[in-house]
C-alpha cells in the first residue's frame, strides 16, 4: 500500500470511525466496517442510518475507481441500482470521476459517492422514488450523460463528442464536435475541457466503446447512418481502442 493511500485510510477512519478493518491484497486494499451517517440534501429530509460496507480500493486509486459493496444484505432486491456482481452502482464511470475529482481521496469517495447513494436508497425505500435523478441503465446511461452535459439532441453528436475527446483531448481552435460550426473555445469549450480533465484513458475508452456500440446497433437497424467523415474517424479510433 502506498503512503498516500495509508494516509487516506487514516483520514477516512478519523471521520467514519466504523470503517476500521483494513486488509491488503495483491491487487487492491479492502476497507470495511460500519458506515454511520446523518445526511441531508437541499429541500429533503435528514436521514440517519448505518450500513455495513466494503470498499475495494485499487492500488492506482483515484485513477481507477473503487468498487463498493453492502455486506449485510440490507439493500432490497427490488432496488435496481446494483451491478450483477452485487456492487453498488454509484454512477456512470465518468460521473463518478466528476464527483471524485472534487475531493480525490477515500473520504471524498465515501462522502460524495457512497453516502449520497445510500441516502438515495433509504429515501427510495421510504417513499418509493429516488431523491436525485436516476441514470438509464447500461450503455444508455453513459450516452445520456454526454447528451445531458452538452445539451445534445442525437446519439451521433454524442459519439462525435466522445470521438473528439479520444482523438484530440481538448483543442480550443478546432470546430466544436457538437456540429454547431463554431470553434470549441466559444462553443462547448468549458464542458469539453472538464470532461477531458475528468477522463482517464480507461474511462475514455470504455465510454467510446459503449456509445459506439449503441450507435452501431442503430446503424444496423437502419435508424441512423454515419456521415463519411465520421466513418474515417471511427475506423481510426476503433483501431486504437482495440489495441
Amino acid at each position: 500500500m502506498t503512503e498516500g493511500l495509508r494516509r487516506q485510510i487514516v483520514e477516512l477512519a478519523s471521520v467514519h470511525s466504523g470503517l476500521k478493518n483494513v486488509v491488503e491484497h495483491d491487487a487492491e486494499t479492502i476497507v470495511s466496517g460500519t458506515l454511520l451517517f446523518e445526511a441531508s440534501a437541499d429541500g429533503l429530509e435528514t436521514i440517519k442510518e448505518s450500513f455495513e460496507i466494503e470498499l475495494m480500493i485499487p492500488h492506482d486509486f483515484p485513477e481507477t475507481l473503487p468498487r463498493v459493496k453492502e455486506t449485510a444484505g440490507r439493500i432490497d432486491t427490488r432496488y435496481e441500482h446494483r451491478n450483477p456482481s452485487g456492487t453498488l452502482c454509484l454512477a456512470v464511470p465518468i460521473e463518478q470521476r466528476r464527483v471524485l475529482l472534487e475531493q480525490p481521496t477515500l473520504l471524498g469517495c465515501v462522502n460524495r459517492l457512497v453516502v449520497p447513494y445510500l441516502y438515495g436508497y433509504c429515501f427510495w425505500k421510504k417513499h418509493g422514488r429516488h431523491p436525485f435523478d436516476e441514470a438509464a441503465h447500461g450503455h444508455e446511461g453513459i450516452l445520456r450523460h454526454y447528451m445531458d452535459t452538452f445539451s445534445l439532441r442525437d446519439d451521433l453528436s454524442a459519439l462525435a463528442v466522445i470521438s473528439f475527446l479520444l482523438e484530440h483531448g481538448y483543442r480550443g481552435h478546432h470546430d466544436c464536435p457538437c456540429g454547431s460550426g463554431l470553434r470549441v473555445k466559444i462553443c462547448h469549450g468549458q464542458a469539453l475541457l472538464a470532461l477531458h480533465q475528468q477522463h482517464t484513458p480507461q474511462t475514455l475508452r470504455g465510454d467510446f466503446i459503449a456509445v459506439f456500440d449503441l450507435c452501431f446497433a442503430k446503424f444496423q437497424n437502419g435508424q441512423i447512418s454515419f456521415p463519411q467523415r465520421m466513418r474515417l474517424q471511427l475506423a481510426r479510433l476503433l483501431k486504437i481502442v482495440s489495441k
Binding site: V15, E38, V115, P116, D133, E134
Partner: peptide, 14 residues
C-alpha cells in the same frame, strides 16, 4: 453520526 450535506449528487446507474 458524521453529518453530511449532499450537493450535486451523482445519479445511480447500473
Amino acid at each position: 453520526a458524521p453529518r453530511i450535506h449532499i450537493t450535486n449528487a451523482a445519479k445511480p446507474w447500473r
